[in-house]
């Protein structure tokens, strides 16, 4: 599969304030993301994961190094809108990314900006709303919706642009468990059914466990990059940078430490239940 996002030796520092040395947030990141992949980016606060996300659609530009999406460099000012249509971005707080007081008009916002003709806009807005299961709420005001519903509206607003990839910056951090579940299922479906590449920045380990690939960042560097199964088997290393592993992985790890024979690559509840069952049978 060809790469959609290519990040080469990316360095980034926020401009220095008076008599301050600039703080280097990203210290030479190399990352390639293939078309259709579902990638989670994990990292502690201040690890640079949000900064990295903002580089993918050109909100921030590299201090040095390059970022390209579908062959377009983010530094290419003439193609910036083309780039932003290919790489859509969803943020943490649903309230602060909804522009209009009517749901369907908010979903249409990007299309209005792009000058899409009315008939096509109508169709794409309706499709996007159906994709996130919010079609019946199209005439509502966002103020009447729950956090999870608002976040789905924000996602619909991005889907309507027909992007090749969507970057989500902790989209579930402010939601209740129900809202998280709804949003995650929408994201997964976008990836499976529409083949949209997903870059999910999160600090929920169970969400990362559902992805194809997990990238772990610490202090501006990528320190682990592999399948969730592989990454979470490095329990000690992951814990050392202040992150957790999924609860079931931790349980298996604790059991192993206590001297029981448990496999170390458990990431789902079913696998864990199965392994514990086998353990009981043997005892």
């Amino acid at each position: 599969m060809e790469n959609i996002i290519e990040i080469k030796n990316l360095h980034f520092s926020y401009p220095a304030e008076e008599d301050d040395t600039p703080v280097e947030v990203l210290k030479g990141i190399d990352l390639e993301i293939r078309k259709g992949e579902f990638v989670a980016v994990l990292g502690h606060n201040g690890s640079g994961k949000s900064t990295l996300a903002k580089h993918i659609n050109g909100i921030l530009l590299p201090t040095s190094g390059t970022v390209t999406v579908g062959g377009i460099s983010t530094a290419d000012e003439e193609k910036i809108f083309d780039l932003r249509c290919r790489a859509g971005m969803v943020f943490q707080n649903p309230d602060n990314q909804i522009v209009s007081s009517v749901v369907e008009e908010d979903v249409a916002f990007a299309l209005e900006n792009l000058g899409v003709p009315y008939e096509e806009m109508r169709r794409r807005v309706d499709d996007a709303l159906k994709d996130v299961n919010m079609y019946e709420y199209r005439h509502h005001s966002p103020a009447q919706l729950s956090g999870g519903q608002k976040q789905r509206i924000a996602i619909a607003g991005i889907i309507a642009m027909k992007p090749e990839c969507i970057i989500l910056d902790e989209p579930t951090a402010m939601l209740d468990p129900q809202g998280r579940k709804e949003v995650m299922s929408v994201i997964r479906r976008m990836n499976r059914e529409h083949g949209i590449t997903i870059v999910l920045i999160t600090h929920y380990m169970d969400e990362a466990a559902q992805c194809d690939r997990v990238v772990v960042m610490d202090k501006g560097n990528v320190i682990l990059d592999n399948t969730p199964r592989e990454v979470f088997s490095h329990v000690e290393q992951v814990k050392a940078i202040g992150l957790d592993v999924p609860q079931v992985t931790e349980l298996a790890w604790e059991l192993k430490k206590a001297g029981y024979d448990m496999p170390q690559d458990i990431i789902t509840e079913d696998e864990c239940a199965e392994a514990v069952k086998r353990l009981f049978e043997r005892e």
Binding site: C85, G88, M89, N93, F109, A110, Y118, G157, I158
Partner: peptide, 23 residues
């Protein structure tokens, strides 16, 4: 909020009123 909203609008290709169509 204003800062975040501005970023979100930029991400959705907002560039003023020129050439905009309406739903």
């Amino acid at each position: 909020r204003a800062d975040e909203l501005a970023t979100a609008m930029e991400c959705r290709c907002y560039r003023g009123g020129e050439g905009r169509t309406r739903l």
